[in-house]
């Protein structure tokens, strides 16, 4: 009887689930792999934009694509030297 219900309700028990899960993961990566060149251009643009507001340590700046399960994130670590005074004053007024 247990065998009966087991077979009745079982789904995705074989290797197909593994195939699907692995495919999903590998495709997330395939589809978004930014070329190193593009990543560099992105970095330059980021530096330019952020420098309008903050004085940053461009040497220590890091930009990466992080991938976890099915979600991706652009992760940037940007060390700040100091906030530009003029910008803060303008933003507050």
């Amino acid at each position: 009887m247990r065998d009966f219900f087991g077979r009745l309700f079982s789904r995705e028990e074989g290797s197909k689930k593994a195939a699907k899960d692995r495919l999903r993961l590998v495709l997330v990566h395939d589809r978004t792999s930014l070329s190193p060149h593009l990543l560099d251009t992105l970095k330059e643009d980021l530096i330019q934009t952020i420098s309008k507001y903050l004085e940053i340590d461009t040497e220590g700046l890091e930009v990466n694509i992080d991938q976890e399960e099915e979600t991706m994130a652009l992760v940037a670590s940007i060390p700040i030297r100091s906030v530009r005074r003029g910008v803060v004053a303008k933003a507050n007024s």
Binding site: R11, E12, G14, S15, K16, K17, A19, K20, L23, L27
Partner: peptide
């Protein structure tokens, strides 16, 4: 036969991906 026993992706799986 393989789809039935869960050892091959079916059409819906492939389309979904």
């Amino acid at each position: 036969d393989m789809v039935k026993r869960g050892d091959m992706m079916d059409i819906d799986d492939v389309i979904e991906i």
